[in-house]
Amino acid sequence: MFKKVGLVEKVVLYALLSGIGVALIIPFIYMISISLASGETVAKMEFTIWPREFTWHNFVELFSNAQILNYFKNSIILVIFAIIGQVLSSSFVAFGFSRLNGKGKNFLFLVLLSTMMIPGQITMIPQFIIFSELGWLNTLLPIIVPNFFASAFNVFLLRQFMSRIPRELDEAAKIDGLGYFGIYWRIMLPLLKPILIAVAIFTFNANWGLFMEPLIYINDVEKMPLALGVQILSSTFSSQAVPPWNIVMGASLLLTVPMLLVFFFGQKYMFEANINSGSSGSK
C-alpha cells in the first residue's frame, strides 16, 4: 500500500505534510519570538509570530536571575532523586514478581496492575494529610519519596524484560554462591541496563514538568520546581501590571529544552521499551 507513489500524489503528500508541520511548529516559533522581544514590545503586548527583535540580553537576564536558577536547581534535584528511587525500587520489586515464588503472588500482581486504574485524585487529599503530618510541606519530599516505592507500570515493564532472561543464569549464579539479592544486583541489573535507562527516561518525563503536586505541597518560592516557578512568574499578583512575558517565555523554553534533549538522546531506549513491552514475555 505504501510503495508506488505517483508524482501528483507526491505533491499532495508534501503539501499536506508541510501544512501540518508548519501549523505544529508555529507555537514553538512564537515562543522563541516572544522570548526575544524587547521590554517595550512586552509593555505594548504586540508580539510577532516570526521574531523581528532579537533581544539576546533577555537570556543573559534569564540566566542571571537567581530565582529562576533556583527553580531549575530544584527541578534537577527532584528528577534525580525520582529517577534513583524509581529505577532501584521498581527493578527490585519486579525481580520478586519475576523470579521468586510466594503465597498470594498472582493475586498481589493483579492488585499491582489494577492500581494503574485508580485516578490520583482519590488518594490526593489523604496523602496531603499524611505528608503534612510528617512535616514535609514546603519540601520536595512528598513528590520524591513515593518514587522509592515502585510504580505499577515500571514493575510491569521490567518484569516483562526479566522474564526473557534465561533462568540458567540464576542457577549458575546460585552454584557460585550468590543469594537472591546477589542475583538481582550482580546478574539482573547489568543485563537490564537498556530498559533501566528507559525507566529513567519515563521517570524524567513524568516529573520534569510536574505541576499539580508542587502546587499542592509547596508555597515557599525558594523550594519550587521550574514548572511551578514559570506559573508564578507569569501571574500578576505582584506590583507590576504586565508580567515580563519575554522572561516567562525564556523560562518556558528552559522548561522545554531538557525534554527535547532527553528525547533526542534517549529515543532508542524508549522505542525499545515501547515495542517490547506489549509482546511476548512468557509467564
Binding site: V93, F95, G96, N101, G102, L108, F149, Y180
Partner: peptide
C-alpha cells in the same frame, strides 16, 4: 524463597498500603 519474595516486593507493598 517465599521470605525473599516478600522482601523483594516489600517496597511496593508498603507503598501500596501507605499511599
Amino acid at each position: 524463597e517465599q521470605r525473599w519474595f516478600y522482601i523483594f516486593i516489600a517496597p511496593w507493598l508498603i507503598g501500596f498500603i501507605g499511599f
